[in-house]
């Protein structure tokens, strides 16, 4: 098992390298270059320009720029925000808890919705409930999550006035109470639930056809025990993988959903960075999110190996 895990760990290295190369070139892909787009109206003063070029290290040849940047990266230096003057890593760490809170809550919401529906759907296959939840999940898969968010805001904030429509509390940067979390988490969790419901259902259907399920039934176990103990447990293995893949949709989703609810996380930060042309912030945040995604997937794979003894031998 250790060997399998080590191989998986090593396989991450090229991906990490690739991600940092892409992130590095994000800034270099800017038409013209960073300096001319930051300088704006001051453009044309060659002295200022040369000064800034040196400051951002753009006077060096490309490969030493990369090495310089990569070296900083290894020490956790993601550069400095051009607007606030703060280290990008500090800004990321300030806002990461908000994004993580939202993502984890959304995951919880999605599990709470998807598993019961999937079980009912699979057990009562082709019944009315099955058709209903399948249709619901297909619709959930097709509606853009930010639109769902807008509709929820309309119903629960604008019309009913039950829940706040944006922010997360007192304006001091502190998390005031749970009510601020409900709408964003449901918005993000619902679209996730649609996908995991479909996956859990089909994987459960497959498992329910297995011999050991027949054996369990034959030896007289109650149907509820067969479904929960024997079938559901085994059908969750592929679902765990789906959740890992979903982590990407989750992180991308937070960017949009945070924008809908003015949630003070990394998503709103990256969008603000793009509109303010604060390149180090954009680069750093995207890199951070991509790394986070890779780490989550790595963890999921390791959990997978742990859950499924067949994988421990390395096949």
């Amino acid at each position: 098992m250790l060997r399998v895990m080590l191989i998986r760990l090593v396989s991450v290295v090229p991906v990490l390298l690739g991600i940092s190369i892409i992130s590095f070139f994000v800034i270099r892909m800017i038409p013209g270059d960073v300096i001319s787009s930051i300088m704006g109206e001051n453009f044309g003063d060659p002295q200022v320009e040369a000064e800034m070029r040196r400051y951002f290290g753009l006077d060096m040849p490309m490969h030493s720029q990369f090495l310089h940047w990569f070296g900083g990266l290894l020490q956790g230096d993601l550069g400095t925000s051009m607007r606030s003057g703060q280290p990008v890593l500090t800004e990321i760490m300030d806002r990461f808890p908000a994004t993580l809170l939202l993502a984890v809550s959304a995951l919880v919401v999605s599990v709470l919705i998807s598993i019961p529906f999937a079980v009912v759907s699979a057990v009562k296959r082709n019944g009315i409930l099955d058709a209903g939840s399948r249709l619901t999940s297909l619709i959930g898969l097709s509606l853009p999550n930010f639109w769902l968010g807008i509709l929820l805001v309309y119903v629960f904030s604008v019309s009913l006035g039950w829940l706040p429509s944006q922010g997360w509390g007192d304006g001091e940067g502190g998390f005031a109470d749970l009510r601020y979390l409900i709408l964003p988490a449901v918005t993000l969790g619902a679209s996730l639930a649609a996908i995991s419901m479909r996956m859990t259902r089909s994987s459960l259907l497959e498992v329910l056809n297995q011999d050991y399920v027949r054996t369990a039934r034959a030896k007289g176990l109650a149907e509820a025990v067969v479904v929960t103990r024997h079938a559901l447990r085994n059908s969750l293995i592929p679902v765990v993988t789906v959740l890992g893949i979903q982590a990407g949709a989750l992180l991308g989703g937070t960017v949009v959903v945070e924008q809908v609810f003015s949630w003070p996380g990394l998503g709103t930060m990256v969008i603000r960075g793009i509109s303010q042309r604060d390149y180090p912030v954009v680069q750093g945040t995207l890199l951070f999110l991509a790394l986070f995604y890779v780490v989550v997937n790595l963890l999921v794979d390791l959990i997978y190996v742990y859950l499924d003894p067949r994988l421990r031998s390395g096949h």
């Binding site: 991906v15 991600i19 892409i22 892909m29 990407g248 949709a249 960017v255 990256v270 999110l289 997937n297």
Partner: peptide, 20 residues
């Protein structure tokens, strides 16, 4: 694989961020 390991929307954001 590297492109795949970027969350879809983030990859699109990265390109749009760079190119405007």
């Amino acid at each position: 694989d590297v492109l795949f390991s970027f969350p879809t929307l983030l990859l699109a954001l990265a390109v749009v961020a760079a190119r405007g």
